[in-house]
């Protein structure tokens, strides 16, 4: 084991460009697999857990008692369905919207560390692009989704869609700002914008170091993901399905999938920024000790996702004016207050 690591480190030091290229190619292949399979599991998990909350069974036919193959069946259905583009739609924008949405997700995914390997007392983070400004970059890439939502809604030429798109934009603008301020607060405390360094600097979780920032970030994240109580852009009882009303078949599938991709990446981001990332006691069993940071990250992410589903099953949907009011009048001032707190505490500990 030591020998392999030594060779790799040596190679990385001697040929940094080629090493980065190889890592990039492998990483791209791995993350598109991990993110998409992960999202499928999130969809399945949401359906199962939500059913549990609602006293139902959820998927329980395809793939045995747990309905694990339900998503496969759904995906096959979506792929084989007729693809309908409305006659009055802006065709180019309509076709590109789901692709932009996928792109936004993948852009987020490249900079997010999916965990670490613990070898010889040292954590090796699993990240494709270990940028110095990855926290800022991820935050920026997450908001690209708003553009895709607007493209989809605007190009559909449908009344429900355009209302959904407007709602989506209004909501995302109102909440991206406090979310960004919260990321900056974390960076101030960690003295770095690099997600890996932010995780490494968390001797105590930032959820405890800046509880206000944590709460604001969670609310802003739920808004960003468009989940209840902030799913106004696709409130089905008001505007049918919002921005994706006209979509069908695999294009709809892509948009739907991106929501869950984002939910997965968002929960990982939340874990990295506030819940200590992959930190946790090392399991003293061979092999397991290597992947124990991965296990910890996985468990934290599952709890975060479970929390999101819990929220969905118990809260009402807010009205769009209430959402923007709350965003600008409460979330933004409070996030700035949290930034002040982070500066104060951060400089004290430094």
């Amino acid at each position: 084991m030591d020998g392999i690591i030594e060779i790799i480190t040596q190679f990385a030091a001697e040929e940094p460009a080629i090493f980065a290229l190889i890592i990039g190619i492998i990483g791209a292949a791995v993350i598109s697999g991990v993110v998409n399979v992960g999202a499928m599991l999130v969809i399945w998990g949401e359906r199962k857990v939500l059913s549990d909350f609602c006293n139902r069974y959820g998927p329980n036919r395809v793939g045995g008692r747990w309905g694990i193959l339900q998503l496969g069946a759904d995906a096959i259905k979506l792929f084989t369905k007729e693809d309908i583009i409305p006659g009055d739609a802006d065709k180019a924008v309509y076709v590109w919207a789901p692709i932009v949405a996928s792109m936004a997700t993948m852009l987020v995914a490249v900079a997010i560390p999916f965990g670490a390997l613990h070898i010889n007392g040292k954590d090796y983070p699993l990240v494709v692009a270990n940028m110095d400004i990855s926290a800022l970059y991820v935050e920026a890439a997450l908001s690209l989704m708003a553009i895709a939502v607007f493209m989809a809604g605007y190009s559909s030429n449908n009344k429900y869609s355009i209302l959904g798109a407007f709602r989506g934009i209004a909501r995302m603008i109102a909440y991206e700002v406090p979310m960004g301020v919260c990321v900056i607060s974390v960076a101030v405390m960690a003295h770095s914008l690099n997600l890996v360094e932010i995780v490494e600097s968390q001797t105590i979780w930032y959820a405890f170091a800046q509880p206000l920032g944590f709460v604001i970030f969670v609310i802003a994240l739920i808004t960003d993901l468009g989940r209840i109580p902030f799913d106004q852009s696709e409130a089905e009882e008001e505007i049918i399905s919002g921005y994706n009303t006209e979509y069908s078949g695999i294009r709809w599938g892509l948009l739907y999938f991106q929501e869950y991709n984002n939910a997965l990446l968002g929960s990982i981001l939340l874990t990295l920024l506030f819940l200590g990332g992959w930190h946790g006691p090392i399991i003293p069993i061979p092999i397991l000790d290597i992947i124990s940071p991965l296990i910890w990250l996985f468990m934290k992410v599952v709890i975060v996702l479970w929390f999101f589903i819990w929220v969905r099953s118990s809260l009402f949907r807010l009205r769009i004016d209430q959402v923007t009011d709350f965003g600008w009048k409460w979330m933004l001032p409070l996030s700035l207050l949290n930034l002040g707190w982070a500066v104060l505490i951060g400089s004290y500990f430094a």
Binding site: C54, E237, S313, F316
Partner: peptide, 15 residues
């Protein structure tokens, strides 16, 4: 009615 305001995932409706 609750599902109209809270979405179909709202648990009390099923209860």
């Amino acid at each position: 009615f609750l599902t109209l305001v809270a979405g179909v995932g709202y648990a009390p409706w099923q209860y």
